[in-house]
Design a protein around this nucleic acid. Structure first.
Length: 241
DNA sequence: AGCCAGGCTACCG
DNA sequence: CGGTAGCATGGC
């Protein structure tokens, strides 16, 4: 089902919810992001279609992309995924069987290809052991190469679980707006967002979509106003709260 | 030329 | 515990 616009049912207490207000302002400004690209779909971006991932192959592709995208740009990830596609190497089984040097060459555009090859092979061992079931966050964190952000990326975008994903832009934005201070760690920021949103969005599917769009919107906004010092220069959000 | 990107591990004090 | 070097390519 493709919507014309996504508008979650929200409880009335939202007037005082600045976190949700930020989400609304960003959504009004940038619109739905359809954020996670799927290289076998045209177009790969799919705003307002929340029926992804559609099968196990697409779940695995998101997991793979979540690791590949660590500290790099998604355009590099797409290049690497397309290289793997040309090698017919987008499944866990195929990656296990391919020559390791060939694999490293394929993912070269994302950088850190030695590390990431090791991380991906570690992840595949875990992924195969799942037999299609949904991993827990702690299980993911136990895999070498998967930290908090990658775990939440996999849970939120591959498995449609209600886990908000925090990144560097999120922290810079909330710092600039005065919602947090420097001491806030990943989990603190995650808890802040989740606690504010889940109390006013009772429908789980709506909550998941808001988490997915919110993170994507923060990245888009971050690219515009929080990618280089001084962070927040030109950001219009503070004035509109 | 230099900084940043949709981070994580290992190792240090 | 917190802090930091190392990982590596690509784009602007």
């Amino acid at each position: 089902m493709i919507l014309q616009q996504f508008m979650p049912k929200v409880q009335l207490s939202m007037q005082q919810n600045k976190i949700y207000k930020i989400y609304q302002l960003l959504y009004d400004k940038y619109g739905p992001q359809g954020w996670w690209p799927y290289i076998n779909h045209t177009p790969s971006y799919h705003p307002l279609d929340y029926s992804f991932p559609k099968n196990q192959d697409e779940i695995f592709e998101v997991c793979l992309g979540s690791i590949l995208t660590q500290n790099t740009t998604f355009s590099s990830v797409v290049k690497s995924l397309n290289n793997l596609k040309e090698l017919n190497c987008l499944s866990s089984q195929k990656i296990k069987n391919i020559d390791k040097e060939t694999f490293k060459t394929a993912i070269k555009p994302v950088g850190y290809f030695n590390q990431k090859t090791r991380y991906i092979l570690e992840f595949i061992k875990f992924y195969d052991s799942l037999n299609g079931s949904v991993p827990t966050r702690d299980e993911l964190l136990n895999v070498t190469g998967i930290g908090e952000e990658t775990a939440d990326s996999i849970l939120l975008y591959a498995y449609n679980q209600p886990q908000f994903k925090v990144d560097a832009y999120t922290k810079r934005l909330f710092l600039h707006l005065g919602f947090i201070d420097e001491k806030y760690k990943y989990k603190d920021i995650k808890n802040l967002v989740e606690s504010k949103l889940k109390t006013i969005i009772k429908n789980q599917k709506d909550l998941i979509i808001v988490y997915q769009e919110f993170h994507a919107l923060i990245v888009q906004h971050g690219k515009n106003f929080y990618s280089k010092k001084t962070y927040g220069a030109g950001c219009f959000l503070k004035d509109q709260l």
